[in-house]
Design a protein around this nucleic acid. Structure first.
Lengths: 332, 332
DNA sequence: TTGAAAGCGCTAACAA
DNA sequence: TTGTTAGCGCTTTCAA
């Protein structure tokens, strides 16, 4: 106990008052240079570290952000976390990472926890089951800014950072059109997800605009386990596709399994293009897969900058977007 | 401000003292059941949340663990984090995750930060450059227990949780011997890493014990980029290996690239076995790769239980180990 | 069984 | 330019 250095000790040693010491340490203009020097030197020597809890208690302000994600074993979220971590550290903030496993009950607990901890701000990717945004609202009431990312509420009275999901699909569709392919198998996730709907719609729109567009075969997968088999069936049919579009990384891995099992060569026998959250999966294969990147890292950087404007000043709710872009491999 | 419920408010509303309210809430035996009831009900109704900073300030005890990892975009560490997160939540603790990018300077900052935050305990995977353990020691002096995991200091006066690296390699080697193969290409990481040394030694030992063991060709890779080319060369040589052993997931991905590019079939033309931190990579391929699992998740569970014994009581330093085990795919 | 009061380490308004 | 004081919300000892 006695080895912990406090302002009190420093002030006693220097025969000054606690408040003088406190002010000297933060360069308050009222304090003389001599005193400042003395205090700072001693503090340095003693390796004085202010007690963050005491500061928090008297200022009711913390340097901790909460970050709620569905999972941590997912490259998209980890790259997002990575970005927020890096940027936060630069400005002296730390992160508490809370994982929901997509369970609304756990999510609710996490939100309460953040409120209780008086975090300086909260980043949140909502679980699909979240219907009750009152809890999030209650944070705003406590003037804790919330930045939603990736999966965000539909309503307009909140801050969000997202990808232009439509654009990602549009870019992919246009890349395919350029190659004069005959038949495209496009694999999307569950139709109920809003991200699926957006990407699907944009993708189809491009095809509809061009009379010479290849034939389009849409397939939705909800049970990942059998995705591979479905794709294999398609690839073995008479009217087999010469191009596969995957809406996401997971879908890509199943498509690649199917292609490998049938020993088809890419891109000659079948071309592949995907939308991906990072370069990891596309670069894992030979040849490297052409993909539209929707980078978690960039999203994280944007999220933090949005957070900082909220923390500093009272701004109206914002919807921000990260633009996806095409990365050419040799698979298309 | 006035919307924050404090003990003071509750006590005023009930016309009792703050201390009575405080004690009632924590079932202090001195307090009458009636009072307890009244206080608890009101607290519930008002959604009273104790201010953690005030608690911390008066008890100088927090419910936050620090967790220092090299990176967060790595399945091994994320599964470790995942485990520690899950287990911590069960007992009401939260995690602050700090990432070093293997930079000793950042690591030093993180340690200081944890000390300053008075975390209840610290999990740490050290950076290769760490030579100065004084900082870690200083935590112990502040009676903050430190559990090292995965990459741990050599000296004995610290708590560690690790894999039996030797065992992992031994299991893999024995699995290969059972299959009566002729020639094995074993690919290891940099020889300077202690994990490489351990695995290499154990692997070789098994082969030396059996006169009928297959020919063994050891290769160390330090530049991951050219690993694929090296493997391809080997696979195309006259005396080509019929089995490849990979020391890690990353190495496996390069080996698989090489095999795919040469269009070899597994396991007929070449068999594959790896040591892996999760089921992710082995299951990514067709056929699924046989592997020895050294699971980050299990390590995390062990780390937390080690932490809890340290938190509760003064115990001597412990070295704990997780046993690896073989998971059979169809690649060997 | 309850209350009063001191204290955790710091900030900030006010006084000197 | 510096010191005094009250207070942040809670815990805990001591007294009633």
């Amino acid at each position: 106990m006695s080895d912990v250095i406090t302002l009190k000790k420093i002030s006693q040693l220097l025969n000054i008052s606690i408040s003088t010491a406190s002010r000297a340490l933060k360069d308050h203009p009222d304090i003389s240079d001599i005193t400042k020097q003395k205090v700072k030197e001693l503090a340095e020597m003693l390796e004085y570290e202010p007690n963050p809890f005491a500061i928090q208690l008297s200022t009711s302000h913390s340097n901790i952000f909460g970050l709620i994600v569905p999972e941590v074993s997912n490259l998209f979220y980890t790259s997002f976390i990575d970005a927020v971590e890096n940027e936060s550290r630069k400005i002296g903030y730390t992160l508490i990472i809370l994982k929901t496993d997509d369970d609304p009950a756990i999510e609710a607990n996490h939100i309460k926890y953040c409120k209780k901890q008086r975090v300086a701000g909260l980043f949140a990717c909502i679980t699909p089951g979240t219907s009750n945004f009152d809890l999030f609202q209650s944070l705003n009431k406590s003037s804790i800014p919330v930045i939603f990312f990736d999966r965000v509420p539909d309503n307009s009275n909140c801050n969000t950072v997202c990808f232009e999901d439509e654009t990602a699909a549009t870019i992919a569709a246009e890349a395919i059109l350029k190659k004069n392919r005959k038949k495209v198998l496009a694999i999307f996730a569950e139709p109920s997800l809003s991200i699926t709907q957006k990407r699907l719609k944009a993708f189809q729109q491009v095809f509809q605009q061009y009379p010479s567009a290849p034939k389009l075969n849409i397939y939705h997968t909800n049970h990942y386990e059998n995705t591979k088999e479905i794709i294999k069936q398609q690839l073995q049919s008479n009217d087999r596709p010469d191009t596969i579009f995957c809406m996401s990384d997971v879908i890509l891995t199943y498509a690649m399994k199917a292609i490998h099992e049938l020993q088809l060569t890419i891109p000659d026998e079948v071309a592949v293009i995907t939308i991906s959250n990072s370069d990891f999966f596309p670069k894992l294969y030979t040849p490297e897969i052409t993909y539209v990147e929707t980078s978690g890292y960039k999203l994280g950087v944007l999220a933090l900058s949005a957070m900082m404007t909220c923390v500093k000043e009272d701004v109206p709710y914002q919807k921000l977007y990260v633009d996806p872009y095409l990365v050419e491999g040799q698979s298309l």
